[in-house]
Design a protein around this nucleic acid. Structure first.
Lengths: 336, 336
DNA sequence: GCCGCCTTTGCAAGCGTGTGCAAAGCTTGC
DNA sequence: GCAAGCTTTGCACACGCTTGCAAAGGCGGC
């Protein structure tokens, strides 16, 4: 069996007894074809198992229909949830998603990105906290539409989707205060991405405003293990905090587990904990984590909608959206 | 700024003072170019910001370099871990991953798949338990290489990667028996995929062989919530099991949480629990789940290696690999 | 009946690349 | 110095598709 023998529009045309153009027009929305020829063509195409060659079409139109998703930490609950939403919505919009994994620190990132450019992707969506601004410039320079999620690059052109991180930090302080907490802690990763730092700044600002004791630790990556380490640091202090806001749900899970199982601390009686993202595990019985929900569906919808609008020619120019993270109450903070 | 103005090999050729073929050959591995012209070309390409148009190249070669990943439940810990490994390794192999999300039950799956065919993907890797065999046939018919992970279709041609599910089911019975358990339970989803059923059959077979009491429940999807429901079913029985094997770690987490927090049962003292997959959460302090580890890295490596071998012309034909899932001991089963 | 208009159709010119073929240039051995 | 052999280079065609252009056909209004 010959591994590749796709049938071309020409063969369909011959079988249908029409010209090659007619076939092409049949599969081009908005082209002028009579109902009769369209029928003949689709019948022949069906019989032969014809599929438009999107490579050739993209070559002509100079527009590939490919959207590439640039993402690190794919296996993380929050990222994979966002990925699910994005791919689903892109498919519904008739686009196709190319996945670029920026986990590896070697040259594979650049290689993959350049690959995306070589495939003439129409757009890129960057979900990664990766701080490399040159990637952004490269995409823009090559005529790609760009969506930045939870980043803060200043380059004009891309759609920037951000959350109200600072305000979330402030709001959770109020919740802690209402629960009677006096000594506040912020557990952060040392990744230093703008969203994480925004939460931290809001938290610290609000705490000092209320005259509450507050301290910050930063360590490692935003995962479970780092949460445990941060708990170690906070809970071995002479004066333990009675409330901690973790920059991430994963950090919060690690923190809570360490507090309970290594230090025998009862949550929320002796320690209130809050997180950010609302990953699935936050709702599990073992955690019942009060946390801020990232509106992943809304983020994905906004991104895809913007890409589609743009496609229709309206140059929407630089734009930015600011969504709010809603606080989901569970059981890791005492009632007020 | 014109949104799209890529520069072509022709422009590079003119700037470098060579023919367009020379440019083409410079970027084609194994082609005959002198070091001198190669230098001139790469310099010019660099200066102009040239990127080979992979669409045109794919059109000529009839081979796109695209591998499409067909996956459902992307946001699930096990799936996203596998996805991470696959995309990383594909990138290293110089291929590019196209992601197709089969979560939606409407027509978008077929549409997306047909899109993959229209992009002339060289291969597809199916990680989804989706039982639709017509997809398999469609891929094969269109000359794609195919890798099936944890499925059991009979079609010849694809590489099939499977685990020793049956044996795992048997092995865990031994572990339970050694822990002194007498009344065994198997908590399954009702998805009925071959890997899940394999674990169940092995478990039941070994248990009856040892003369141990064993019973099975199947419910819902393979997630956390189903685990809670299954716990409800088993633990409200007049005679409770003292050991349960969950077909999936997610099921096990839900089961364990329900057992502890809703029924006040102590794990592993009153109830031993084991899972399958070794997702990250299995190692979290709240669970300490003894479970079988899916060798995701090895699975991904095998899949990608096979794709690359194939590319070099050796028609490896139908092939199948059987990997073993190693039992990771934690604290959810009593010591023997 | 003729003219203008609108819809449908075919022709052919591209899109950016790979590659067979032949010519040219260079090396080697005598 | 010359023929044979190898390497390098350019030409031109092919890949499968879209689309502007013009020709053809259908239709109504005068």
């Amino acid at each position: 069996m010959p591994p590749k023998d796709f049938i071309s529009a020409l063969e369909v045309a011959q079988r249908a007894g029409v010209s090659r153009s007619a076939v092409s027009r049949t599969f081009t929305p908005g082209a002028s074809v009579s109902a009769e020829t369209r029928k003949k063509v689709t019948d022949a195409a069906e019989a032969l198992g014809y599929h438009v060659n999107e490579l050739a079409r993209g070559l002509m139109r100079n527009q590939s229909g490919i959207v590439c998703l640039i993402v690190s930490d794919v296996a993380t609950p929050y990222r994979s949830a966002l990925l699910r939403e994005l791919t689903g919505k892109l498919q519904n919009a008739g686009k196709v998603a190319m996945l670029i994994n920026t986990d590896r620190s070697d040259g594979s990132v650049d290689r993959a990105l350049s690959q995306a450019i070589r495939y003439r992707a129409d757009a890129s969506i960057i979900l990664s906290g990766l701080p490399d601004a040159s990637i952004v410039r490269l995409c823009l320079k090559n005529g790609q539409r760009l969506v930045l999620i939870n980043r803060d690059d200043d380059e004009p052109g891309p759609l920037k989707i951000n959350l109200d991180d600072f305000e979330a930090g402030e709001r959770i302080v109020t919740a802690f205060a209402r629960a009677g907490c006096k000594s506040l802690a912020f557990a952060n990763s040392d990744a230093g991405t703008p969203s994480l730092m925004g939460r931290e700044r809001g938290f610290v600002a609000a705490a000092t405003r209320l005259g509450l004791e507050v301290s910050v630790e930063r360590y490692g990556w935003t995962g479970y293990e780092a949460g445990r380490v941060l708990a170690q640091r906070f809970l071995t202090r002479p004066r333990r905090p009675d409330a901690v806001f973790c920059a991430t749900d994963l950090l919060a899970c690690g923190f809570m587990d360490a507090a309970r199982h290594q230090f025998g601390i009862s949550v929320p009686d002796q320690l209130c904990i809050a997180g950010f993202d609302d990953i699935e595990q936050a709702s599990w019985l073992s955690y019942g984590l009060t946390t801020f929900a990232q509106p992943v569906a809304e983020i994905a919808a906004k991104a895809v909608r913007w890409l589609s609008i743009d496609e229709n020619g309206n140059d929407t120019g630089s734009h930015s959206a600011r969504l709010t993270a809603e606080l989901v109450w569970r059981t890791s903070i005492r009632a007020g």
